[in-house]
């Protein structure tokens, strides 16, 4: 790891003032479970590290049945997991937090950090950037070691999968991300927070280099049934192979509206409107859940070694739907 200047501001205004106008000069440190690993591999190599953990305003979790849930970006995954209101009202989110299976990562890692995590793609982590190419300029990933790469949204140039555990659930639950910069707060839907990079200098979110993710706001979940289902190779210390988060607004026994979001299948969390439409006006049972699961992976284009992920994503969506339909809230 290269040497860097360090600051631990106590206000969001100070923090933003310490950041730089372009990526690469300064990095935001929160839980440290991703950033320090990246810096040890010299990606990135910031001259300054701004530790935002001491900014009280961006900490904590608050729930009110009238206004919904407010997650400070600095609240840890463990705080999310142990919050009774989250468990009761937003089961998809609690189940997603449970998927972060290392207590040490849950204790240190933050909600904001989960969303701002860099790709786990091994080409990226080896310093080859988003778009590794061979000597002839041909993309390496489509015919390379792509077991864990994208099956959707992969028509190029990016093939990595977004590693966030919480994003699919937050998108299913219609959360908004509040971003603080020198001009004050701005707000985007979590769904729009993620972008597929087109150039190696880009990032995977709409955050600018001198902004910080401050908080996440979820609307009240009264009458919403939600669930997250992850398919994993290992139970611990790894990311899921595929995941799905769903939120259902029911009218009696039938679905009034649905949100179906896949994780770990595309460079961004992947919302499937086809699956959502397939559910409208229907009761959730084995058949309808299965049809929606198939609709969710409609258009999937597996690479040379990840065809198996299509089936995993299909099943993840189906099981998340069945789980949500059985659950309360």
């Amino acid at each position: 790891m290269n040497a860097f200047e360090y600051a631990a501001p106590t206000t969001k205004e100070q923090a933003v003032g310490l950041l730089a106008d372009r990526w690469g000069d300064a990095e935001v440190l929160a839980g440290g479970t991703d950033l320090l690993s990246l810096m040890k591999d010299y990606l990135p190599t910031p001259k300054r590290v701004v530790n935002i953990k001491d900014i009280k305003e961006l900490q904590g979790i608050k729930y009110s049945s009238a206004t919904g849930l407010r997650l400070g970006a600095l609240a840890t995954i463990e705080e999310l997991l142990s919050n009774a209101a989250v468990k009761k009202e937003y089961p998809a989110l609690a189940q997603a937090a449970e998927g972060v299976s290392s207590p040490q990562i849950r204790n240190a890692g933050t909600i904001g950090g989960d969303l701002c995590q860099r790709p786990r793609c091994w080409y990226f982590r080896s310093g080859l950037g988003y778009f590794p190419k061979d000597d002839g300029g041909k993309d390496l990933i489509p015919t390379g070691q792509n077991e864990y790469h994208a099956i959707l949204g992969n028509s190029g140039p990016a093939y990595f999968v977004h590693p966030s555990s919480l994003a699919p659930a937050l998108i299913a639950l219609d959360a908004k991300a509040r971003i603080f910069g020198s001009a004050g707060w701005r707000e985007v839907r979590v769904e729009e927070f993620f972008v597929t990079p087109n150039n190696d200098g880009d990032r995977e979110t709409v955050l600018k280099s001198n902004e910080i993710l401050g908080e996440i706001i979820l609307p009240p979940a009264k009458g919403i049934r939600s669930a997250t289902y992850e398919v994993r190779q290992k139970e611990a210390l790894d990311w899921p192979l595929a995941a799905a988060a769903v939120a259902l607004k029911m009218s009696g026994n039938t679905v009034q509206s649905a949100r179906v979001v896949l994780g770990h299948v595309a460079p961004v969390p992947w919302r499937s409107q086809a699956a959502e439409q397939a559910l409208g006006g229907k009761a959730i049972d084995e058949n309808t859940a299965s049809e929606a699961g198939s609709a969710a992976v409609n258009g999937a284009r597996p690479l040379s070694k990840n065809g198996y992920k299509v089936q995993l994503a299909r099943v993840a969506a189906k099981r998340a739907l069945l789980q949500a339909a059985q659950g309360g809230a």
């Binding site: 440290g32 320090l36 690993s37 530790n51 463990e78 290392s102 207590p103 040490q104 210390l237």
Partner: peptide, 21 residues
């Protein structure tokens, strides 16, 4: 942050000492 061999307890919570300054 991937193996746990550096685990220590900070403020009563287990953390990876490799991933904290």
């Amino acid at each position: 942050s991937s193996c746990g061999a550096c685990t220590v307890i900070v403020s009563g919570k287990s953390v990876y000492a490799c991933s904290m300054l």
